[in-house]
């Protein structure tokens, strides 16, 4: 790269129209254009499925399987969305289920993990290193492979088909506790000391004085947790049987498995409505997201 730049900087002093110098002058521009073209190419490929989803959701019902396939619908319609909202159990039921479950997951996981992380970072107590080892141990195990024994535990507790079964197992989040501990270790304890001198209780010191200082950690963990929960499939699929309690991903699965639902355009509209909140959240909180995802490895 820089070698190219050097020739570029040297050549303007030679005023000429000779081919060789022109090529030399053009080289950086050419490189830049090529790189841009490659970047655009990949951008188009990666975004194409979502454009296709949007296009299908706007096509009149029954024209999705027409050949040749077209990107621009010959007639744009919102009927598919109307259909999504007028199913036996309408879209908004599933949507609100998803919102509720994801919100509880975020709030619960953030609170519990931050509190645990705080205890690990700022207190000394007996059993602390054992506790920390247990948390590290939990980080080694992807929770998904434990679905079968978790199912049995949840069944023993009588929580099959209960909404709490989608929340309680996930809010004691070992990676969350670990991340908060790491962030909080980096914040000086003088805040805590001065809080104590002023007579504030330990919890108030944590909630009002200390936590705001690790705000970015809260934000990053919250958005990532929300999207994980919003998109989670296996566990809700295993635990829920009552269709009224379904969250969006398993409802989508039910739609495509149901031999009586043949309306692909409607399914596309439903899928689009499932994706949009996550994408918007991502675009708004992009920086936090990338930071958060780069520190989480859960799939």
């Amino acid at each position: 790269m820089s070698t190219q730049r050097n020739t570029g900087e040297n050549s303007p002093s030679i005023p000429s129209l000779s081919g060789a110098t022109l090529v030399q002058q053009m080289a950086p521009v050419l490189r830049k254009t090529t790189k841009l073209a490659i970047a655009v190419f990949f951008g188009v490929i990666l975004i194409f499925p979502l454009i296709w989803l949007l296009s299908g959701a706007l096509k009149p019902s029954g024209t999705l399987m027409r050949f040749p396939p077209t990107l621009i619908p010959e007639r744009i319609t919102l009927n598919n969305f109307r259909n999504v909202f007028s199913q036996g159990i309408p879209f908004q039921t599933y949507f609100m289920n998803s919102v509720l479950i994801s919100a509880l997951n975020v709030v619960g996981a953030v609170f519990l993990s931050a509190m645990m992380g705080y205890a690990l970072a700022k207190y000394d107590f007996p059993g602390k290193s054992l506790l920390f080892s247990l948390i590290l141990l939990g980080m080694l195990i992807p929770i998904q492979v434990l679905v079968v024994p978790m199912f049995l535990v949840v069944r023993d507790l009588g929580l099959i088909n209960a909404r709490s079964a989608l929340v309680l197992p996930f809010i004691a989040h070992p990676l969350g506790a670990f991340l908060f501990r790491q962030y909080m270790l980096g914040v000086p304890s003088s805040v805590i000391e001065s809080g104590r001198i002023e007579g504030a209780g330990e919890f108030r010191i944590f909630a009002q004085l200390f936590s705001p200082m690790v705000g970015p950690a809260f934000a990053a963990f919250s958005v990532v947790m929300f999207v994980h929960s919003w998109n989670s499939f296996v566990w809700p699929y295993v635990v829920l049987s009552d269709a009224r309690k379904f969250v969006l991903p398993i409802w989508l699965n039910q739609l495509i498995q149901d031999p009586y639902v043949r309306d692909n355009a409607m399914i596309f509209a439903a899928a689009l409505l499932t994706v949009v909140p996550a994408v918007i959240l991502f675009i708004v909180f992009q920086r936090r997201f990338v930071a958060g995802f780069a520190t989480t490895t859960e799939k």
């Binding site: 979502l50 299908g56 919003w230 998109n231 991903p249 495509i256 499932t274 994706v275 996550a278 990338v290």
Partner: peptide
Amino acid sequence: FRTLYFIPRVVALPVGAIVFTLMLHHDV
């Protein structure tokens, strides 16, 4: 570009499965 490339990561797997099933249909 970075945003564009990362967006699919927040798409729910079932949605990906639905779109690709139709995109990969052998006839249409």
